[in-house]
């Protein structure tokens, strides 16, 4: 009973900590340069807040998000590339911090599978239609109008 009770409390605490902070975070950070600003906004929307895990660090009110935004800003000003900043984040938090999976060996399948499935669907469709077209001549069921 104790274990499940504490599990539940942990669950509730986690849940509450996640949902309680549903209040908005409006990020008013400005960077000196327009281009940097755009990159900043793009990056902060691409990185997941690890505390409120369904928000980007741009939207999350968590303290951690604010710290991470600060880090992004500092690195942009220091001249790091988007790639370098993402890698820096991934090094610390793992791939989960990226909202969009990078294109590497472990995630290539995620990007390719939809395309492959579409091809598969196309093939299936063609096959069925071919098969049924052949049957049309022999089929004497009534033609129903639209």
């Amino acid at each position: 009973m104790n274990v499940s009770r504490s599990l539940m409390r942990t669950g509730i605490a986690l849940l509450l900590s996640g949902l309680a902070a549903v209040a908005l975070a409006v990020d008013t950070t400005t960077l000196p340069d327009e281009k940097l600003q755009q990159r900043y906004e793009k990056l902060t929307h691409e990185l997941r807040c690890m505390k409120c895990q369904n928000n980007s660090i741009a939207d999350s009110p968590a303290g951690l998000a604010a710290d991470l935004r600060r880090d992004v800003k500092e690195q942009l000003i220091a001249g790091k590339s988007d790639e370098e900043i993402r890698d820096w984040m991934v090094q610390r938090y793992g791939n989960v911090i990226l909202f969009t999976p990078a294109m590497d060996a472990s995630s290539a399948w995620v990007w390719l599978l939809p395309g492959l499935a579409a091809l598969g669907g196309l093939v299936i469709g063609i096959r069925i239609v071919r098969q049924r077209s052949k049957l049309v001549e022999q089929d004497d069921s009534e033609e129903i109008s639209r």
Partner: peptide, 13 residues
């Protein structure tokens, strides 16, 4: 105080 070390360790909560 600034959370930099925590971030280096990948702390999130």
């Amino acid at each position: 105080r600034e959370g930099r070390t925590a971030i280096d360790f990948g702390v999130y909560g």
